[in-house]
Simulated assay, not measured.
Amino acid sequence: MSATLCALILTVSALIRAVSGVLGGPTNVTLSSNNLNLVLRWKPPNGAPRGVIYTTEFKSTVASEYRKGCVNISAPECDLTSFNITEYGNYTGRVQVLLGAESSLWVESNHITPDKDTVIGPPEVSVLSNGQTLEVSMTDPKFSHSSLRNVFISASYNITYWKKGQKDKSKQIAVTQTRVILNDLEPNSEYCVQVHIQTSQKPNQSILSRIICESTTDEQSLWVETGIVLVIMVVALVLVVLVMRNWRNISQFLFPKEALPQHFKDPHALLAKPRSSVYLVSSKPVEEFNQVRVVAAEEGRLLEEAGSVCSRQPEGGEGDGDVEKLKEEQTAELLPVDLISS
């Protein structure tokens, strides 16, 4: 039933447009402002054919005529911020639909004053744990015209913080500075922080920032961590001093100055002909030998007997001649034949 009704409405609107020769105008034409910009938005007309384009105009209450905005655009949006507007003006806009030679009637938007009606964005927030306290830092959102503090002189930050899991017991403080220390916190606990901007000119608050949670620590543990850091720094400093004082020895140990001879470094020098005239001559070794006589056991016994006889003779006695004769006989037996004959 609903599908049939929609088809009937589209058919009737198409017939009206064909009879009257006028396009249907855009719907929901709205002028809005975020961070002091000025944007005109709308929706295409019901049953609009493909290929339609739009032209926009705007004016302030102090001007009697409209000024051209975006012309012949296909997107249903026009940013009027760059058309020399001021944050204190009261503006209205209007949109017209175009299709070839056809055009719709102008459809006007609402009136808006940027400094009163703009939506202030969320501030940038960072939270840093410092022992049993939390340091909260805030940055203003960027504005299209001027800045937050120039337009909203009395702007302040509304900080809401609570112990995680206990948002119903949250606390709030309002400050104007961009850095705040939260010191009424419990040690070793996790707290969450959220901030928004409040101004006297605007009854409504800004968009809330994202929630950031950070844990506190114990003061004693903070001193322990600080002591560890100091010890590490002292040790590092001592090492640096020792290295600087003994750098010459260390560098000689790590990078010795002794170098290889040049002829070892150059591979061509190893293959080159030696400069010395003395060469090692490799020739067949010459064998040298002497004649050796093997003495039989009987001959050895005779020599021993001769020695014993000599030992029994008195010094300068009569047996000297016999002994000498016996030695000669034994010696003659030991000598080779060729030596005896000679």
Score class of each variant (00 low, 15 high):
94 R>M: 03
68 K>D: 09
97 V>I: 06
108 E>R: 12
241 V>E: 10
156 S>I: 13
130 N>T: 05
253 F>V: 11
211 I>P: 01
258 E>K: 07
82 S>G: 13
209 S>T: 01
92 T>C: 02
79 D>I: 08
66 Y>R: 06
86 T>I: 02
114 P>Y: 04
155 A>I: 02
31 L>I: 01
257 K>M: 11
292 V>W: 01
291 Q>E: 13
248 R>K: 15
275 R>I: 07
178 T>Q: 15
157 Y>W: 05
117 D>W: 05
245 R>P: 03
147 S>N: 03
34 N>H: 11
219 E>V: 12
130 N>K: 15
83 F>C: 08
230 L>C: 07
50 R>A: 15
139 T>L: 09
40 L>H: 05
214 E>Y: 07
56 T>C: 04
203 P>G: 14
137 S>P: 03
212 I>E: 09
224 V>K: 10
92 T>G: 01
179 R>Q: 10
83 F>Y: 15
23 L>E: 04
117 D>V: 03
28 N>C: 05
337 V>A: 05
16 I>F: 03
250 I>G: 05
301 R>W: 04
55 T>S: 12
157 Y>R: 01
16 I>T: 14
94 R>Y: 00
160 T>K: 07
180 V>G: 01
59 K>P: 10
6 C>H: 08
263 H>R: 13
161 Y>D: 02
223 W>C: 04
142 K>N: 06
144 S>I: 09
205 Q>K: 09
207 I>E: 04
86 T>S: 14
337 V>G: 07
206 S>M: 06
182 L>Y: 02
223 W>E: 14
192 C>R: 00
77 E>M: 08
79 D>M: 03
49 P>F: 11
324 E>W: 11
59 K>T: 15
33 S>C: 02
37 N>Y: 02
69 G>C: 09
29 V>Y: 08
140 D>R: 03
142 K>G: 03
199 T>G: 02
292 V>K: 06
262 Q>W: 07
226 T>H: 07
